[in-house]
Design a protein around this nucleic acid. Structure first.
Length: 541
RNA sequence: GCGCCCGUAGCUCAGCUGGAUAGAGCAUCGGACUUCUAAUCCGAGAGUCGUAGGUUCGAAUCCUACCGGGCGUGCCA
């Protein structure tokens, strides 16, 4: 990436200026911040180093900037350097730099965007993890999209990624679920509603009436059946997990009891009111938490301690959990438990996602199992389509509550951003098809005369293509997949604008080859972004 | 009460590891199809960045207080 080369260059300039002009700066203190100026007249890149270091150098920022520029080494990729405003140093890159980018893109092709910032690091990312007691709802869908896309991005950034679904197939909720399906009376806090009745019929059809009398078997089959449906829905959404870890297995393999022993051993537990408590308040939690109830049953938290310990023991360099905002009160205790076990709690990053509100036009769709007014995620996928759902889920920061309007999502118009991006891809394919119909064969970028590309819209498109790696880096570093969605729309805009202003296939054979090269690079980039988002790239629309 | 998230254009939201005149889409208004797909493009209007202080050469961005909305605050998960 050019950014590193520029940073090194500026650092050299700064060092040399410091020495030659005895500024007395302690250079190591400064990192070179580069940003893309919003204003085109401010160049391709700008640094504020002169403003930052002016105080220590005891020089006015503009003067310091001049000193740095005077001492800047030569570079073939820098066309011009300007000092502007309060003391910014603006860099203008040569055309050759941009042409070289295109060469790189075509050569890398499917691997364009592949980074190595995660080299030799493994990440475990856990998401959805819905309780297997009913169908997925729209909130789970959001985490499926975010988690899967983030996994793609981290993978592209060079991490080794494992996608994991944690199955809560043990304990009170599961007992209640089985009890709600069985023959006896449904408990007050049991599961009700049409889907339970329907599910009961399904189970009887498959396993016969007897199963209703065999609680253990019922529990097992009921859970397995739900998991199958969950997995099917996720697959339909293009989300496939590498690992499904069952809470029940943490018990049967004694991992829960081992974790508890270890904590007792460290003297971090105590008995009170018949229950066993963990001293999480010693590790920044607001109070201690129960791990073993007074009735002898472990809490969900107990299993979760063992679960996170196990993931760390497997040797992952980082753990990521994606949780709904309603679980936020749970963060402190999980971090505390990791620390209590002598591990670094910063290995775990919890993404707390805000909730989804479902609308039909102006009207909010109330979700309530009791009233039966329930739109499952599966139904939503059927009604809206997976591409639109995935894209919309990824347009907003996970910090923002997402209003999902079914009517809008279904609309195949310019109000729906997913089609805007897909349309750009389809248009490219259409030109390529047209080219082969005209017997115009693209001979590869090496044979193209790229210096013929100089129109404003052409350069704008190249610039956008070039930003892809940076966007991936930022998304991977900050765990923010939504910036890729924003990027995809900008890239599409740059393409559409190019499309209207520059005809690719013309009588000018040389220009046609150059534009086909650009088109090919736009195609590669667009396809690769859509792949990271998990949205299809149609040949035609 | 305490904790977390949000409050930016009519609407939905970016921007928040401090930078140069606060952005995008939709909506509104005005232009562009004999041309590789008009699901497109080009242009215009539209904002006390919730309020009040503070830090800084510089604040939508950092700090403090307050106001408004959401979610938590279980021996539920």
């Amino acid at each position: 990436m050019i950014i590193e080369q520029l940073q090194a260059l500026i650092k050299d300039g700064l060092k040399k200026a410091n020495k030659e002009e005895t500024l007395g700066l302690s250079i190591s203190k400064y990192s070179i911040d580069l940003e893309r100026p919003k204003e085109k007249t401010h160049g391709d890149w700008a640094t504020n180093i002169a403003l930052v270091a002016s105080k220590e150098a005891k020089k006015a920022p503009r003067q310091l900037a001049e000193a740095i520029v005077r001492n800047l080494p030569e570079s073939q990729y820098i066309k011009n350097v300007e000092i502007a405003g309060p003391g910014f140093i603006n860099f203008f890159l040569t055309n050759e730099w941009f042409y070289q980018v295109l060469n790189k893109v075509e050569e890398a092709d499917k691997d364009y965007g592949q980074l190595s910032i995660g080299k030799d690091q493994s990440v475990n990312i856990e998401f959805v993890s819905a309780n297997p007691v009913g169908p997925l709802h729209i909130g789970h869908g959001r985490w499926a999209a975010v988690g899967d896309s983030l996994a793609n991005i981290l993978n592209k950034a060079g991490y080794e990624v494992t996608k994991e679904f944690y199955v809560n197939d043990f304990g009170r909720q599961i007992d209640l679920f089985a009890a709600s399906l069985g023959v006896g009376e449904v408990p007050d806090d049991g599961y009700k509603g049409d889907y339970i009745e329907e599910y009961k019929r399904k189970i009887v059809d498959k396993h016969g009436e007897e199963i209703l009398y065999d609680t253990e078997k019922l529990k097992k089959e009921a859970v397995n059946g739900q998991l199958e449906e969950i997995e099917t829905t996720l697959k339909k959404f293009r989300v496939v997990f590498d690992v499904w870890t069952r809470e029940s297995e943490l018990y049967s393999s004694n991992k829960v009891s081992q974790a508890i022993f270890e904590l007792e051993d460290k003297g971090l537990t105590y008995q009170k009111e018949g229950a066993t408590w963990l001293k999480t308040s010693q590790f920044d939690d607001e109070k201690d938490r129960v791990i073993m109830r007074s009735n002898g049953e472990p809490t969900y938290f107990a299993a979760d301690i063992a679960y996170h310990k196990d993931k760390i023991d497997q040797g992952f360099s980082r753990l990521i959990d994606i949780w709904g905002a309603d679980h936020h009160g749970y963060i402190a205790r999980v971090r505390a438990s990791i620390e209590a076990l002598g591990q670094d709690p910063n290995k775990l990053k919890i993404i707390l996602g805000q909730l989804v509100r479902l609308y039909r036009g102006q009207e909010i769709v109330k979700m309530s199992k009791r009233t039966g007014e329930m739109v499952t995620f599966d139904e939503l996928l059927e009604e809206v389509g997976k591409d639109a759902v995935r894209y919309i889920f990824l347009t907003k920061s996970t910090d923002t509550t997402l209003d999902f309007d079914i009517e809008l999502a279904k609309e195949q118009s310019n109000k729906n951003p997913v089609y805007y991006v897909q349309y750009a891809h389809a248009r490219i394919c259409s030109i390529l098809k047209h080219a082969s119909g005209q017997a115009v064969s693209y001979k590869g970028i090496k044979k193209a005369n790229l210096s013929l590309l100089k129109a404003e819209t052409e350069f704008n498109l190249i610039r956008h293509i070039e930003q892809f790696e940076e966007v991936i880096q930022e998304a991977a570093t900050n765990l923010t997949p939504h910036i890729l969605t924003t990027y995809s729309a900008k890239l599409a805009t740059a393409f559409h604008s190019f499309y209207t202003h520059c005809k690719v296939i013309t009588d000018d054979k040389e220009l046609t080859q150059a534009r086909l090269a650009l088109l090919n690079c736009a195609h590669i980039t667009l396809r690769n972004v859509l792949e990271l988002l998990g949205v299809s790239a149609p040949q035609k629309m």
